[in-house]
Simulated scan of single mutants.
Amino acid sequence: MPGRVDVRSIREGLSLTQAEFAARFAVPVDTLRKWERGVREPDAASRAYLTLIQRNPKVVEETLAA
């Protein structure tokens, strides 16, 4: 199971704004903001999803577009 993830680092590594990241990867922008501010932590499934986005964002984008 993935451990702690740095959501902001993942997003910034893709050079996306919060709104762009949220739209591209189907994450509510409010949720993304709370994760980045540390108000909330992603659950296990979200951590796995974010790890996949970090490692291979193109596959995630292609899968969501299908």
Rank of each mutant, 00 (worst) to 15 (best):
L32T: 07
R47Q: 12
R24D: 07
T31V: 12
K34P: 02
F21H: 11
R24V: 12
L52E: 12
F21L: 08
R24T: 15
P28M: 02
K34D: 14
V39D: 11
E41N: 10
E41K: 13
E36A: 06
A48L: 11
L50G: 03
R24S: 08
W35D: 03
T51V: 13
L50A: 06
K34C: 06
A22I: 07
G38C: 04
R40F: 02
L32M: 11
F25M: 02
F21C: 08
G38A: 01
F25C: 03
T31Y: 05
R37S: 14
S46C: 04
V39A: 05
L50Y: 11
R40T: 08
D30T: 15
P42C: 00
S46K: 09
G38Q: 07
A48W: 12
R37D: 09
V29I: 13
E41F: 04
E36F: 12
Y49W: 11
F25E: 02
A26K: 15
V39F: 04
R24A: 10
F25Y: 15
L52I: 07
V39I: 07
R47L: 06
A22C: 14
G38F: 05
K34H: 11
A45K: 13
A26G: 00
A22P: 15
R47C: 06
A23I: 13
R47A: 05
V29M: 10
R33I: 08
L52K: 11
D30A: 15
A45R: 14
R47S: 05
A45N: 12
S46F: 04
T31F: 03
R33A: 07
A48T: 08
V27H: 02
F21T: 09
D30V: 14
R33W: 08
F25W: 10
R33D: 06
L32R: 09
S46W: 10
D43Q: 07
D43E: 10
F21S: 04
S46I: 00
A45E: 13
F25D: 01
R47I: 07
L32N: 02
V27K: 02
V29P: 14
L52Y: 13
K34F: 03
V27F: 13
S46N: 06
T51C: 06
V29F: 04
R33L: 05
E41Q: 13
E41T: 11
R40M: 00
L50M: 11
T51S: 13
E41G: 01
P42D: 01
R37F: 04
V29S: 10
A26P: 03
L32D: 02
E36D: 08
R33M: 03
R37I: 01
A22S: 15
E41P: 09
Y49L: 05
V39S: 03
P28T: 03
R40C: 00
R33S: 13
R47D: 04
A23Q: 15
G38P: 05
R40K: 02
D43S: 02
A45W: 12
E36T: 06
R37M: 05
R24Q: 14
V27A: 01
D30I: 11
